[in-house]
Design a protein around this nucleic acid. Structure first.
Lengths: 349, 349
DNA sequence: GTGAAAGCGCTAACAA
DNA sequence: TTGTTAGCGCTTTCAC
């Protein structure tokens, strides 16, 4: 279809509507916001004109005058990761249901970007900021980052999925200890004792918590903790693959592998297959996050789920509560549950 | 950390800076935008104060006054789908490099949402809209949607990844015909003649194009087109799984399966495995999109890639060119290439 | 119930 | 080079 020159001509405003309806701009504003009552006949007349032009009020002007944009900024580490994507969409839906919209900012794991995104969202005058992943995952928070956040918190509520030291943010985080408890109960219940852990960095809170819970569970059941069964690494398929390779070269191979997330688990699966072993007959594999990846692999992964919809809603509800000045818990927990699929089974004899 | 009451007190403005620096607001504005020269000593004084307060100009006010927000709206079908996520991130990066930022709106495959998202972006006064997936994938565009778009195009450039009839949008789309050509050459070159196609709906342009190319290629090589080798369906693992199940019950099983995307391919892989067959020894599997899913599965998928970074950049560059009133191609093509991995091999004898 | 007027924070002529 | 002024489009007192 041929393009006509972009008609910068004139975007229709509330004044145009007012003029055509023979009323003042304030009256139009009143029917738009419903902030005060307008005589029925006028109201209908105005609404008709609004529809006729398909008029949409300028959100910038509205935000400027309101000093509230009804927008929540969400900083995610990387939206290409299904964990963040799911959580983001849940937030989007929860926000919408509450009359807010969300704006996404990807930090892509780059520290500098994370700070820039914070600035960006502040410039956009978002009413609150939700940060999922990134700096908030650090076991110990970077000082300059904490300072930045402290500054922001003075005017804008911040809720994070991890933790931030020394800044008055709200947090909604996964009960990792419990998650690992569930996994260990599951595995030990299936007769496993040689349980390994693959992937993850100890400087990441969630991993650190999981590791501690892993050790505790082993001890509780009188199972010796073997250092060579814990292979740190990244959160990707390659780390899971390489970690599992090391595990399978051990003289005493584990019978179960706890992968730090579904990606790492996919690598574990590959390594195991290449070693000519079967899952779950020879080795069981469990992981965290229950992203759709868990459902795509063969065997399908037994994985820890967090009820993303609920998780997102907690994040958003907390943000909105703080915006409205309501009292809220500083730290809330999301409870995990196990989704049992095909990758775990009885320990081999 | 204890929360102090949110200090709604006073957000600092350009006037505060001006006052403290003993200059006028416009002078501050000038150093902020670099739109005109300011005496060096003043400039430095102002910059010092800006840093001291970590002042960030209000983007709403700026956008209102400029009537340009330096923002591009991106409507994606579903950011949880890695195809869209990759493309979105590429757009984000390309936009940033050009001094723009992007705002994401998920339509989630809901037609009504798609229209709402369009309205939302218009209210936010984005400088352009990029739509990837959704209505733009339809073989024949919905009339009311086309009308809406026509309206928008009057003031705001719209660039889509698919096609829209009867609306002056710009398009950057994948050369699907070529993509299928490449796959068929690959397969036929490996000696395959019994080639099936699994997943996808004929009312979706990309699928329609691929199907036609599939038929053309078969004909070109003198291979009979068999209706039972084409199983339409969705774009998810289940469709790939069920489709392949049907294929494997045929008296004459295909030796190669072209899945409509990586998700469908994952289902195909599962079905094949359950039938006790091996990939690629007994059956080859190829797919489109080359999302990271292709790399996670075992065997890793041979898949068609689009160079997402380039794709995103084309989308954004086109949008910006139109914003700036520069001349641009109405329809551009993204060229596909094959990423050869483990799931395809020589046809069995 | 309704209009006039001021203001949200910034930019961009226009003078000086 | 700099300050003054007038908007950008909306909401919201404040009178009437």
């Amino acid at each position: 279809m041929e393009k006509e020159k972009l008609n910068t001509a004139k975007t229709i405003t509330i004044y145009d509507i007012a003029k055509e309806a023979g009323v003042s701009a304030s009256t139009v504003s009143r029917v738009l916001t419903g902030s005060a009552s307008v005589r029925k006949e006028k109201k209908e007349r105005i609404q008709k004109i609004i529809e006729k032009y398909n008029f949409k009020p300028n959100a910038l002007a509205k935000g400027l005058s309101d000093t509230s944009t009804k927008t929540i900024g969400v900083i995610a580490a990387d939206i290409r990761n299904p964990f963040y994507a799911s959580l983001f969409v849940s937030c989007e839906l929860a926000a919408e249901a509450a009359g807010y919209s969300v704006v996404l900012a990807n930090s892509l794991g780059v520290k500098e970007r994370e700070v820039n995104q914070l600035d960006y969202l502040m410039q956009q005058r978002v009413d609150a900021i939700i940060q999922i992943g990134g700096r908030v995952d650090d076991l110990v928070t970077d000082d300059s980052y904490a300072e930045k956040l402290r500054d922001i918190c003075k005017t804008t509520p911040v809720v994070v999925t991890g933790k931030i030291d020394k800044a008055p943010v709200y947090s909604v985080s996964i009960n990792q200890t419990k998650a690992m408890d569930i996994i260990m109960e599951h595995l030990i219940g299936l007769g496993h004792e040689k349980i390994a852990m693959v992937g993850g960095l100890m400087r990441v809170v969630s991993t650190y918590n999981k590791y501690n819970s892993y050790v505790e569970n082993l001890k509780k059941h009188g199972i010796a903790v073997k250092g060579e069964y814990v292979i740190n690494g990244n959160y990707d398929p390659v780390s899971g693959y390489e970690g599992t390779n090391k595990l399978l070269e051990l003289s005493e191979q584990p019978t179960a592998i706890v992968a730090i997330n579904d990606f790492a688990a996919s690598g574990a699966l590959r390594s195991i297959r290449e070693h000519g072993l079967r899952v779950p007959e020879d080795i069981s594999v469990v992981s965290f996050d229950n992203t759709y990846t868990a459902d795509i692999l063969s065997p399908k992964l037994t994985s820890i789920d967090y009820d993303y919809d609920h998780f997102g809603k907690m994040l958003v509800d907390t943000a909105i509560a703080v915006i409205k000045g309501q009292k809220t818990d500083d730290n809330q927990m999301v409870e995990p549950r196990l989704v049992f699929r095909e990758s775990t089974g009885k320990a081999p004899d």
